[in-house]
Nucleic acid binder design. Structure first.
Lengths: 313, 313
DNA sequence: CTGTTAGCGCTTTCAT
DNA sequence: ATGAAAGCGCTAACAG
C-alpha cells in the first residue's frame, strides 16, 4: 500500500493513527486510498515496534460457572469501547493452569485481568511486577482490584430475614482458598452482629450444585435460614432439601449470591444478593487501561427478594 | 537474551521452537538459560515474521445466551491443546457489529470462527477469501462448518411424544434469519412425516425468554405438544403458560433445544434435544487448524427426557 | 549442526 | 508538514 497514495510510509502511519497530526487534505486522501485498498495497519508490526498490543488477557477459573459470563461480557464490551481486544483463557479451577496461562499470555498483552484467581498472593505480586494486573473478586496488597461492595446487599438480605422472624442463620462457605468466600463471610458476620443475629459458619464446600447437595446434609435441624456462598450452591441446597422432603421456604429459608441466570427460574425462585458482574468486568478493564479508574466508587450488591425465603419456622 | 547462551539468535530460535532439529546438548543448554532468564519468544515478532499468530478469533452473536458458553469453552480448550490462543468478540446480535469485529480482527488471527453468524452468505464468502473461516451452527456453500447432527435427537423426541399419544405438534420457530432455526424446522418436518405426525409452524419469535412469552399466546388451544426453537424460548413458554393457568405437561407438553444450564432446574424440568455444544466448539477449532477435521462425523444431538412432556391431553 | 544476512510492517527520531 | 533511515525481535534462506 505504502506509496499507492504517493507518500512515504511514515506519512501513512501518521495519517492512520493520530487523526489530527497532519495536513487535513493529505490525511483525507490517504484515508480514502486505504479505504479503497481495504488496507489496515498490521497490528503485529505495530505491537512489535511500540511494545503495546492493544490486547488484554482475561483469565477465569471456570467457565462452567455462569457467574463468569457476565464478567466476560462486561469486560469485552468495555475493551472494545477503548479499541482493545480481549484474549481469553480458562484455568479450569487449577492454580497451575492459571499460572501457565498467565505466563504464556504475558508477552502478548498489555494487561492481565484475573477473575477469582487461585494464585497465591506472592504469585500475583510477581506477575504484577512484569505486567499490569487487575484482579476481580480478590484482593492482594498493592494490586489493582475490582470488587463489589457487598455491604448494602448483605444488610438488605439480613434485614429481610430478621423481619421475617429469623434470629440466626447458617453461612455455607465456599472453597477455603476463595478470597470472595471469606469476604462474604466477613460482611455477613459483621452485619449480623449489628442486627443482633447469630451466624454459624459451615464448610468449606465446592462452589457448585454438587457442593450444595453436600452442604444440604450438613445443615443443622434447628436452622431456619441459610445463606450460601453462591447461587449454584444455593440451588443445589434447595434441590437436595426438596428431595429430602424439607419445604423451602416453609421450613428453611435460602439465600444465594450473584443472581446468576436461572436463579429466578427455579421453584421456589431464589432470593439472592446480586453482584454487579458486568460492571465488575467493565471496571477491571478501565482499571487496566487507566490507573485512575481505581478511584471510582465500586458498584454495590443489592438484595433480590424472591420466594425462597419466608417466615421463620 | 540472544547470546547469554553463547550462540546465535537463529540457534536460539531453533532450539525453542522445534524440539528436534538441533544438537541435543546445545538445545538443552539453551533451554536452561532461557528458563533461568525467564525468556520467551516474542509472539509479535514471531507473528510478524511468519505471518502466523497462533491465534483464532471467536465471534459470537450474544453472550447473554447460555448456549454460547459451552461453545466458547469447548473452543478455548481445544485451542489451548494446540498451542493456540482465542481472541474473542461479541457482536451483540447485530450483523454490522459482527462484520466490524471480523474486519478488525482479521489481521491479527489465523482463522475466524463465527458462531450462529448473522452475516449474509455473501459477506461470509468474502471473509473466507481473506482468511480461513469456520462456521458454527450455520452452513454456507464452500465454507467449513461445524453443525450438530440433529436427526437422531429429533427422532427420539418425536417418538417419545408419539408414544405418549400426541398426534400433532407445534414448532415455535426462531429468528427468520437464523439458519439453525430453519434447520431444526426442516429436520422436525421430515421426521414428523416419517412418524405420521402433523406439524404446524408458528413464528418467527425472538430466541429468548421474552420470545417464549410471546409465543405462548400464539399456541392454538387444541395443541397438545410444542417444540420450541431453543431452551430459552421453551422456558419462557412454560412460565407464561403457568401464569395463564395452563398446566405443563398435563395440558401441554413442551420440548426445547440445546439443554442449557438451567433446563433441569425449572419446574417442570425441561425435556430437550441436547446439542453437543462444547464438541461443536472444539471441532470448529480443529477444522480451523486442519481442513481434514471436516471429515469427522458430526456429533449427534440426543433427546433428554424430562418432566415437561406427558400424555396427550 | 550452527552462524550470517536480510527483512517481516510498522513507528520514530532526525532532517528538510 | 513530510521524507529518510534505523530498528523493534524474530525467522528463513544460505553458507560454512
Amino acid at each position: 500500500m505504502a506509496e499507492a497514495a504517493g507518500v512515504s510510509p511514515s506519512t501513512v502511519s501518521r495519517a492512520l493513527r493520530v487523526p489530527g497530526r497532519l495536513n487535513a487534505t493529505t490525511e483525507a486522501r490517504i484515508r480514502k486510498v486505504a479505504e479503497e485498498l481495504g488496507y489496515q495497519l498490521n497490528p503485529m508490526a505495530q505491537a512489535l515496534q511500540t511494545g503495546r498490543s492493544s490486547t488484554i488477557a482475561l483469565i477465569v477459573s471456570d467457565l462452567g460457572n455462569p457467574v463468569y459470563f457476565d464478567i466476560v461480557r462486561g469486560a469485552q464490551r468495555e475493551a472494545r469501547l477503548h479499541g482493545y481486544t480481549v484474549i481469553f483463557a480458562e484455568s479450569e479451577e487449577s492454580g497451575a493452569h492459571e499460572a501457565e496461562a498467565a505466563a504464556r499470555l504475558i508477552p502478548s498483552v498489555d494487561a492481565l485481568v484475573l477473575v477469582a484467581s487461585r494464585l497465591t498472593n506472592r504469585q500475583i505480586a510477581e506477575l504484577a511486577k512484569r505486567k499490569r494486573v487487575v484482579l476481580i473478586n480478590r484482593r492482594v496488597p498493592d494490586v489493582a482490584a475490582a470488587v463489589p461492595d457487598l455491604q448494602r446487599g448483605v444488610e438488605e438480605a439480613l434485614s429481610a430475614l430478621k423481619a421475617l422472624g429469623h434470629q440466626s442463620l447458617v453461612y455455607l462457605s465456599g472453597p477455603s482458598r476463595s478470597w470472595m468466600s471469606r469476604e462474604r463471610r466477613r460482611v455477613i458476620t459483621t452485619a449480623s452482629q449489628q442486627l443482633g443475629l447469630v451466624v454459624e459458619v459451615l464448610g468449606p464446600f465446592p462452589p457448585t450444585l454438587a457442593g450444595g447437595h453436600q452442604a444440604a446434609r450438613a445443615i443443622p435441624g434447628e436452622a431456619t435460614a441459610v445463606i450460601a456462598f453462591n447461587d449454584l450452591m444455593a440451588i443445589g441446597v434447595i434441590r437436595r432439601l426438596q428431595a429430602l422432603g424439607v419445604a423451602v421456604p416453609e421450613q428453611l429459608s435460602i439465600v444465594g449470591f450473584d443472581d446468576i441466570f436461572g436463579a429466578d427460574l427455579i421453584a421456589p425462585a431464589l432470593a439472592t444478593v446480586r453482584t454487579p458482574l458486568d460492571m465488575l468486568g467493565a471496571r477491571a478493564i478501565r482499571m487496566a487501561l487507566d490507573a485512575a479508574a481505581a478511584e471510582e466508587r465500586p458498584a454495590s450488591a443489592t438484595f433480590i427478594q424472591r420466594d425462597s425465603i419466608g417466615p421463620a419456622a
